[in-house]
Design a protein around this nucleic acid. Sequence first.
DNA 1: GTCAATGCAAATCGTTTGCATGAAC
DNA 2: GTTCATGCAAACGATTTGCATTGAC
Lengths: 146, 146
Amino acid sequence: MSTNEDTIEELKKIVKQKGLKYTEQREIVLKILMNADGHLSAEEVYNEIKTKHPESNVGIATVYRALGFLEEVNLITSITFGADGKKYESNQKEHHDHLICTSCGKIVEFLDDEIEKRQDRIAKKNKFKITSHSMQLYGTCGDCQD
Amino acid sequence: MSTNEDTIEELKKIVKQKGLKYTEQREIVLKILMNADGHLSAEEVYNEIKTKHPESNVGIATVYRALGFLEEVNLITSITFGADGKKYESNQKEHHDHLICTSCGKIVEFLDDEIEKRQDRIAKKNKFKITSHSMQLYGTCGDCQD
DNA sequence: GTCAATGCAAATCGTTTGCATGAAC
DNA sequence: GTTCATGCAAACGATTTGCATTGAC
């Protein structure tokens, strides 16, 4: 687990290494995701920027491009929750899976070592080299079962 | 596990029970999915219909409506594979999870009882009543690791 | 000064909707 | 005959693209 500053440094390094340019916009998008507690859609990131950085005139197209870039270099991850569309989260968090309440939308994160181990075993048995995985359990949370 | 005929009968029963009408279009969509070996997108179902049932003039809107209906009454299931969008499969198959090759697109299905059990336990611990879940492992298959 | 990244608007993709017509009951 | 389902085309929301301009190096 690294600090926000570390991750920003990481981004600078990657950008330099690729011969690309370091821009405020990419940094802002990354920061928004690092400071968000949940999972944000592209549009939500865009709105956050508009409220938290009103001075920076960032277009929605740039948000999409930045998200694509950050995911490609593995600083963020995208997940698709059922009908809710694509959402993003910073990779600073440890890997985890999701319990999703289909009634109120609540999301609980969890991690189960045994499941992780079994996933690796299944992959090996099928000669797959796993790069990522995602697992979602859909249902009704305690509060919504009335 | 039931035969195609059983499932068609099931559809007829559901439709009657709901006071709706039994149409050839819904039947065709269901049949396409029962006979497909993989997972089809709405567009792919539509194209299949155009080639396999060229006489029936089915519109894409009807395909979407039929898919929505069939999923609602639990005869088919939808899954979202990363960037690939929503795909559908018949519920005649037993539940299973997916290994997906991000290089060639190959999909291997698997089932692990221990993982299923653990998922239930996690849900219970968090007071969730699970209705469904989906799990995908992404990576590179044996053939693509060169 | 060069080249990548941006903002904007237009284009595109997948999906949904309104509505007049047709088919099931 | 009534009502639901359909086909078509238009509408829609999310994402992408083309292009002239701006900003990082």
